[in-house]
């Protein structure tokens, strides 16, 4: 762990989190490096979404250290983390149903960013996003509430990209959308990766995760049970059977 090829973008140490009185996460450790796509895997209720929400600062009760770009953000509220360049795509999409596609993108807009080393980050404009998601380009004036689930899923991703995030937290991108959309989502992730984006995604679908990710963590009952490259996970039949297959 010490000899990382690039410094970690996100470092999480001993993250605990609660919903009300119930503790959901127990000492989660993980990290994501620049340019990586990392999958956070596990069954329903393992704590994947809770981890992402906790990283975004959206849970009232949590403990542990979260370092983003070398800065301790564990006491920051969601909008501060978002402004530092942490982008969150929620599982339940949460598009603004009364706003048009273009207005949804406007809500997510943040100033252009540069990496601490001065190099330009991946910055987005609506035209660039309409190119990435041609469907959205064709319905810029349509209210978010009148779109299909798959279209909403794309809008949610595009809206988060408008914030020019250094790291995207992508919650269950393949959940509840048609197979053809799942494939589009995978292509989209690979395209983003090709352009240098960094992504931490939560995923139940092993095939999807293998398709897009470099590394994986496996969660079970709020604890990390496995970490390693996607190839190692693919080879580890015991882990897959214990924590991933239904």
């Amino acid at each position: 762990m010490n000899a990382l090829p690039t410094p970690a973008l996100l470092e999480v140490n001993g993250l605990d989190a609660w919903y009300g009185a119930a503790q959901i996460l127990f000492g989660v450790n993980l990290n994501v490096r620049r340019g990586e796509v990392v999958a956070l895997m596990g069954r329903n209720g393992a704590g994947k979404s809770t981890t992402l929400k906790a990283l975004m600062g959206m849970l009232d009760r949590h403990r542990g250290q979260v370092r983003f770009l070398g800065q301790d953000v564990s006491q920051q509220v969601p909008f501060q983390r978002a402004r530092l360049g942490l982008g969150f795509v929620p599982e339940d999409r949460r598009v603004f149903t009364h706003l048009s596609v273009a207005e949804n993108l406007e809500v997510g807009r943040q100033p252009e960013r540069r990496w601490p080393d001065g190099s330009a980050a991946l910055n987005w404009t609506p035209p660039a996003l309409y190119e990435l998601f041609p469907n959205l380009g064709a319905m810029q004036g349509r209210p978010g509430g009148q779109m299909s689930g798959g279209e909403q899923q794309m809008l949610t991703v595009a809206r988060t990209l408008m914030g020019n995030p250094f790291l995207i937290l992508l919650d269950e991108p393949s959940e509840g959308v048609a197979p053809v959309i799942v494939e589009q989502m995978a292509q989209m992730i690979l395209q983003l990766k090709a352009r240098g984006a960094s992504i931490l995604l939560s995923e139940q679908n092993v095939h999807f995760a293998e398709w897009v990710s470099d590394r994986a963590y496996v969660l079970e009952k709020g604890q990390i049970r496995f970490e390693g490259s996607m190839a190692e996970l693919a080879a580890d039949e015991a882990v897959r059977r214990a924590y991933l297959t239904l």
Binding site: P78, F79, R83, F96, L99, E106, V107
Partner: peptide, 24 residues
């Protein structure tokens, strides 16, 4: 206006607005 868009978004989902970097 952008301000108006944010206000309308806030009437729907304030928490998501915060996660998108808007100081409510």
């Amino acid at each position: 206006t952008r301000w108006g868009v944010l206000v309308r978004a806030a009437t729907e989902d304030r928490q998501m607005l915060g996660a998108l970097g808007v100081n409510q």
